[in-house]
């Protein structure tokens, strides 16, 4: 099921890559004097890259109607299930406990970050990730405490496989907003699929139900630490769907540049 979904999206990604012009036309309309004004302006302004000022302002979104449906679903899921549940959970579990649990799961995902560092030639990052794992798993009580950052000031490297693909010049493909899982680019979906092989949780547990439970718990625990962010975004946005899409895209592009 998951495999056929990935193949389907992969095929679509290829089709879109072949006809990018139609995409730009559809989203921005034909070129006119307004564009010249911005192109001129762009030359003066070195702070914004060519990409962010002009027509290529966002990631292609050929599945927008479908994505908007899934976005609506996630929006309801958040307000009807995730938020009330998190509020209850937050009263039982103090913040310190929740962030310790988040540390524990983050520590387990070391292979994803280490491998991504290695493939991008970030040897220091690779070494630091290994060191962090050793230190946090022992002195940090199985990773519940991030002593590597607190005591040694070695911060977690926020690297993943999708960034690695971006590092090798692979384009983002198009935007996909999946139910429950949220925003992805074609590239990050492939990265995410690959990471499933690097996530140790799957190797420790033998039944799919156990894996799903543990993953869901990790997910809801993370969400509980970020209650309020989505509300703020929605309050400031005129079109929250576009705001999420653009925010996701900018965030990911920035991560690849780093």
């Amino acid at each position: 099921m998951l495999r056929s979904l990935i193949i389907f999206i992969g095929l679509l990604q290829i089709i879109v890559a072949i006809c990018p012009d139609a995409q730009a036309q559809q989203r921005w309309g034909p070129l006119d004097e307004g564009d010249n004004f911005l192109i001129q302006d762009r030359k003066v302004d070195s702070q914004e890259s060519d990409k962010t000022f002009g027509r290529e302002d966002s990631i292609p979104d050929p599945l927008e109607p479908l994505n908007r449906c899934f976005y609506q679903f996630n929006d309801k899921l958040y307000f009807w299930v995730v938020r009330p549940f998190s509020k209850g959970y937050n009263t039982i579990a103090p913040e310190l406990m929740r962030s310790s649990i988040q540390n524990f799961f983050s520590n387990l995902c070391m292979p994803i970050r280490a491998v991504s560092c290695l493939f991008q030639g970030k040897i220091t990052g690779f070494g630091e990730e290994l060191l962090r794992f050793v230190v946090n798993s022992s002195a940090g009580f199985l990773g519940f405490q991030d002593v590597a950052q607190q005591a040694l000031n070695i911060k977690m490297r926020d690297e993943d496989l999708a960034q690695t693909l971006g590092f090798y010049g692979i384009g983002p493909g198009f935007y996909i907003h999946l139910p429950i899982l949220g925003p992805f680019s074609g590239r990050s979906l492939f990265g995410w699929a690959g990471e499933q092989f690097l996530n140790p949780v799957d190797y420790f547990l033998d039944s799919w139900f156990a894996v799903l439970s543990v993953r869901s718990y990790d997910w809801i625990n993370r969400a509980s630490l970020r209650i309020g962010e989505y509300e703020a975004l929605k309050r400031a946005a005129l079109d929250p769907y576009v705001s999420v899409r653009n925010g996701y895209w900018q965030y990911r592009e920035n991560k690849i540049k780093e």
Binding site: E48, S243, R245, N246, G247, Q250, Y251, N254
Partner: peptide, 12 residues
């Protein structure tokens, strides 16, 4: 966090 406010509004 690398997300430009004005760019985000421009897209919307």
């Amino acid at each position: 966090n690398g997300i430009s406010l004005i760019n985000n509004y421009r897209a919307q």
